[in-house]
């Protein structure tokens, strides 16, 4: 984990990268309703869709969900939590940690999407975000 990095939600380069990745995610997957990158401690970095209030609230809730998922995985000794899926009647939310960063991507898709495709585009977006941050840092 990159503990020495400045807070992602206050870093204009990281915010710009996150915005770019989210735009790409939307173009690639039209069933995307909403997505946000957030810090581990629940600050919104960048969002696609939603209003400011919702974005902040989802960032906090996704942070709690991620931490609870990590706590369950730790307690069951099954290794690190890879992703979390919340399936509801009219859609689902997938959230996944950005590799090697203190950051999480949470994305809401409508029910028309298959979980498999949604999961793979979220994974791709998370790894793109990681690659962009590394390029910025280099």
């Amino acid at each position: 984990m990159n503990n020495a990095a400045p807070s992602a939600h206050k870093d204009p380069h990281i915010i710009a990268c996150a915005g770019e990745v989210l735009e790409g995610l939307n173009e690639f997957c039209r069933s995307l309703r909403y997505a946000t990158f957030l810090t581990d401690d629940g600050f919104e970095v960048a969002s696609f869709g939603g209003d400011d209030k919702q974005n902040r609230r989802v960032a906090s809730m996704a942070s709690s969900m991620q931490a609870l998922g990590d706590a369950v995985a730790k307690d069951l000794r099954i290794g690190a939590a890879e992703y979390i899926i919340i399936a509801a009647e009219t859609g689902y939310v997938i959230q996944m940690r950005v590799p090697d960063q203190l950051m999480v991507l949470a994305a809401h898709f409508d029910a028309a999407e298959t979980v498999g495709k949604a999961l793979s585009v979220v994974r791709l977006a998370a790894s793109n975000m990681c690659a962009m941050i590394r390029r910025e840092a280099a």
Binding site: N3, S7, H9, D41, Q66, A67
Partner: peptide, 17 residues
């Protein structure tokens, strides 16, 4: 989670759930 809000409290981690 790692605390990125050092202005509020100068501590390494914060409870998020």
């Amino acid at each position: 989670a790692n605390n990125t809000d050092r202005e509020t409290a100068d501590k390494d981690t914060t409870t998020v759930a």
